[in-house]
Simulated scan of single mutants.
Amino acid sequence: MMRTEGIVTFVAVVEGGSISEAARRLRLSKSVVSERLAELEKTLGSVLVHRTTRKLTLTEDGLAFLERARRITREMEEAVTDMSERRGTLAGPLRIAAPVTFGRMHLGPALYPFLCRHPELELTLDIDDRRVDAVSDGYDAIIRHGPIADSRLVAWKLAPSRRVLVASADYLERSGIPRTLQDLEGHRGIFYTNRGIADWRFQTTGGAVIARAKLAMGMNNGDMMRDAAIAGLGIALLPAFIAGPAIKDGLLREIEIDHQPEQEFIFMAHPQGRTPPAKLRAIADHLKKAFGNPPYWDPNPAL
């Protein structure tokens, strides 16, 4: 007889990319994960995964079985969710991905009291600045700052996110204070590499315009970008949720030029085609209230 735990394990192995990652997600030992996968293959009479020391590769039978396995796993999770909702409780597993700095500074503190009030929720929060694929990586939702380009996702706005040009007082004394988009071209910039050097987009009457400064440093983490700006390396375009405390403490100065950065938002996005469970909607509603509009982290929301 085919065991559902084997199907769940197979999906976790595929989505995690390894036995080790599947074991971490399922909170099991690697030996248990391997045993469950082997038992499923024995029951089906077919090898589903080729195992090497470096990676796992799906066989043709594995590819054919994967979509059914995912559907079975999803339906089991939805059944558990449905029963808990009938009891008026929020329960069961959820897996959400979020960027590092926002997760540490704002998402975590907002979620902790919610999870205390709903102890039957089993939330796995993956903190990573890379652009994860919510569909193929098996997430129920992702938290993202900035545009959502993936058409397979349905996005909910959690909060507006104003971005600000900032630099240290020392840098501005040495290099001068820019007043226009054109002035920025003569300055050194600290850029977020996950978006590239074309990230400095500003609103004009003719549409979006990209400002290009000289590359002082590029990195894929907002905390380090803020710290590089504080150290006087150049100008950074940062979300207010990162720069706000440093501006309030006098470590960074907000720079006002003749145009505003393009408006952005904090989103929660879930895969299209799936009915989002009530627990996901409840978390989204809670986060909206916790962040506020304008959000509490913005030192000057009127701009």
Rank of each mutant, 00 (worst) to 15 (best):
L121M: 12
D61S: 10
F191I: 13
A97D: 08
H259K: 00
D223N: 11
L94R: 01
V13W: 05
G222V: 00
M225W: 02
I177K: 13
Y171V: 05
A155F: 06
I255P: 03
V14Q: 08
G45Y: 05
I257K: 09
M76L: 15
R163N: 12
A69Q: 07
A167R: 12
M224D: 03
R54H: 11
A246R: 01
P276G: 00
A240N: 09
F10K: 05
A229Y: 07
Y192G: 02
L111I: 07
L107G: 01
K289N: 10
A98F: 01
G176E: 15
E41F: 08
G207K: 14
R131E: 09
A240D: 12
F10D: 01
R71D: 15
L233P: 02
A231G: 11
H106D: 02
P99F: 05
R131W: 07
L252N: 05
T57E: 12
I242Y: 04
L28D: 00
P295R: 02
G45I: 05
K42V: 09
D199A: 15
R51S: 11
L158Y: 02
R195W: 14
N220H: 11
N293E: 14
L251A: 15
F10I: 04
G108D: 06
A167G: 09
S46F: 01
D140K: 03
A110E: 00
G234A: 09
E35Q: 11
G6I: 06
G207D: 10
S46Y: 05
E77H: 02
R25Q: 15
D140H: 07
S29F: 03
R253F: 03
E262I: 13
G176D: 14
T9D: 06
R144S: 14
D129N: 12
Q182D: 11
R144T: 14
T59F: 08
D183S: 12
T275G: 04
L37M: 14
P261K: 02
W156C: 03
V166Q: 05
F291C: 04
D133M: 06
H118P: 06
H50Y: 07
G186R: 15
D227I: 01
A22F: 04
L111C: 05
R54W: 09
L37N: 00
T124H: 02
L233V: 03
P294T: 09
K248M: 09
H259L: 04
R36H: 11
R54L: 09
S20I: 06
P294C: 13
G92W: 10
A97Q: 12
A91W: 09
L233M: 13
S161M: 07
E262M: 15
P147S: 15
G17M: 12
G234W: 09
V8Y: 10
N194H: 13
P277Q: 04
E15W: 06
P245Q: 04
I210P: 08
D140Y: 01
G222M: 06
P299W: 07
L215T: 14
I142T: 14
G244W: 05
Y171Q: 05
G196S: 13
